[in-house]
Design a protein around this nucleic acid. Structure first.
Length: 223
DNA sequence: GGGCCGATCAAG
DNA sequence: TTGATCGGCCCA
């Protein structure tokens, strides 16, 4: 997006006014998550996810849209106990259990009532490598420590107890911070989402081209 | 209440 | 390529 949006005033001298009661000042990341899910997903590439002594730099994510609009989304059929957090405000963790053994982590995006989220699929462990290896296994190669959504969650030591906690304000076990350095936009690739039956034209999987920690693409296997 | 299938992973 | 393993959700 760095396009020529001409109307931005050059001198944006924001006065340091006191925060109105009940209004939380929003970081750039918080604003990003509050907006549409696709730019939010793209913007999470390179972001730093920290939990339980491990930090992962995200290299692969997927966007999922809301109720009735995206057949691949857990929110597609409406609000349930499991997906309820997706219907709330942005910046909270949607953690779900799948295949009888794995946890996966999403970040809720968009305003309350819009049930969109970004699945964190893979990343590079940039801090706490030994802690991550202790969780994942001694023989696991560095690049594989968080290569895949369930592996990433496992490396971070996250499980269902993080459901519904904030990833922005430090009140929960997970913290997400913006990229240390901006991601080179020419490295961002987009393609169909992993394990999704239909909607092959929806290219909402985003990854950093050439990064060894990006998971291998697997199409959904029908019957 | 029963049955099917999944935003997966690791081993063969 | 396949088995593990179980919660969510649909249907009866």
């Amino acid at each position: 997006m760095g396009g020529a949006t001409g109307g931005t005033p050059l001198t944006r001298h924001t006065p340091s006014r006191p925060t109105p009661p009940g209004h939380t000042p929003r970081s750039g990341l918080a604003r990003l998550l509050a907006g549409p899910v696709e730019p939010a997903a793209r913007g999470l590439l390179g972001a730093l996810v920290t939990a339980h002594g491990v930090t992962v730099r995200l290299t692969e994510v997927e966007a999922y849209s809301g109720e009735g609009t995206d057949a691949a989304s857990h929110a597609h059929r409406g609000r349930t106990r499991r997906n309820a957090v997706m219907f709330g405000p942005s910046g909270y963790a949607y953690v779900y259990f799948t295949y009888g053994m794995h946890w996966c982590l999403n970040v809720v995006t968009g305003p309350a009532g819009v049930a969109s989220a970004v699945l964190l699929r893979a990343g590079e462990v940039v801090a706490g490598v030994e802690v991550a290896r202790a969780r994942r296994g001694p023989a696991v190669k560095d690049r594989d420590l968080a290569r895949g959504p369930a592996r990433l969650v496992s490396a971070l030591g996250v499980d269902g107890s993080a459901y519904g906690t904030s990833v922005l304000d430090g009140t929960g076990p997970i913290r997400i911070a913006p990229p240390r350095a901006p991601v080179d936009p020419t490295l961002v690739r987009a393609g169909p989402r992993v394990g999704v039956t239909g909607a092959h034209d929806v290219r909402w999987r985003f990854w950093l081209d050439g990064d060894p920690t990006v998971s291998t693409y697997r199409r959904h296997v029908p019957r």
